[in-house]
Nucleic acid binder design. Structure first.
Lengths: 199, 199
DNA sequence: GTCTATACGTCGATAGAC
DNA sequence: GTCTATCGACGTATAGAC
């Protein structure tokens, strides 16, 4: 039976992550105090340490969760039943946009707060990030080998496309001039063109 | 006559900016203390306030200098004596890469520390940034109007190209696999292809 | 599970000696 | 121009009451 009064541990833990995500993304990890986070969820600073070992672990958990969700979502995503590199690239681009666009805060801290991770934590997140980049890199390498893509350098193209796509999050706002679907088509066009696919 | 002993005000001011740039870019504005900066240049914390009103002004000066140098460098850069949009875009891309690649620290803090600027300072930097983006946007708009470029949305294409190019700074290292000239050609190819220019 | 109280360090910035 | 000393506030994290 769930308790009726007070707040359960699981719920408070969830609130803690939500508050940390919001404040870290708005003001930056280093500029946010544990007192602020506690105030945000209506508890005292000391109570936070029931749910996280320390501030650093709180940051790492946010980034680690985000990367694991990303990789898991890709594994679960439907894949085209063809080896055509252009179709596989299209699939990746659409996936990337649809996953990242509704997660502005997570994407933002995953990039901005890397430097505030302690070395061991940093290494673990970097490994996940490289795994994700490797997905795109494989598609580009296959497309280059088959002659479907015109790509001077696969590694640079990988960085360029990821940077281009992730840049969406710096300007896209819900309810703005463009819908998610429109953004998706625009970026897809540019990515395919950039690797030399005629449309 | 220049003084022989001690350090002059101008020289210390220069050292202060250099130390702040180094530490802010490495650890982040909020995580760096005035005492650390002072230690870096071999003075006491109190002495820094002879050269800057406060920590915030120090950050603003770094970003403001960077943006003014960028806009001035563009004004001074040689321009093609043609209205061909593809040639003008090529000129912009080459300029962007050559200006930004050797300024990794300045570029990094100009993006990462925007959120740590107070509202007035933020507005001033944003205005300069929009002026720079406007340069590319004009070229793309002209190229779309003339039919030289295939661009679905000029504003999105502007953001996409800037993001793609600035992404260089996250991976490029001096003495690495690729020279500046090679990077320049690779990115130029991708940008031209992305807007539908045949090469 | 959350509170108050607190230890102990560091912060930005200033005052005043030299 | 730089130093030492210092103010008052705030930081993370823990101890122990309830």
């Amino acid at each position: 039976m769930a308790r009726k009064t007070g707040s359960s541990g699981e719920e408070t833990a969830r609130q803690l992550r939500a508050a940390a995500l919001k404040l870290f993304s708005r003001d930056g990890y280093a500029a946010v105090s544990m007192r602020q986070i506690a105030r945000e969820i209506g508890v005292q600073a000391g109570a936070l340490y029931l749910y996280t070992a320390d501030k650093q672990t709180l940051l790492f958990d946010l980034l680690n969760r985000h990367m694991e969700e990303l990789l898991q979502a890709w594994d679960d995503a439907p894949k085209p039943d063809t080896n055509d590199p252009a179709r596989r690239l299209e699939c990746f681009v659409r996936f990337h946009i649809r996953f990242h666009l509704p997660r502005a805060e997570e994407v933002f801290i995953s990039y901005m707060e890397l430097r505030n991770l302690e070395p061991d934590n940093f290494a673990r997140i970097e490994k996940q990030r490289r795994r994700y980049e490797g997905l795109l890199q494989s598609i580009l390498a296959d497309g280059k080998a088959s002659g479907d893509f015109k790509v001077a350098d696969v590694k640079v193209a990988t960085f360029a496309i990821i940077a281009m796509l992730t840049g969406m999050n710096t300007w896209y706002r819900d309810g703005g001039r463009l819908s998610v679907d429109m953004v998706e088509e625009i970026y897809l066009d540019m990515v395919l063109a950039a690797v030399g696919v005629e449309r």
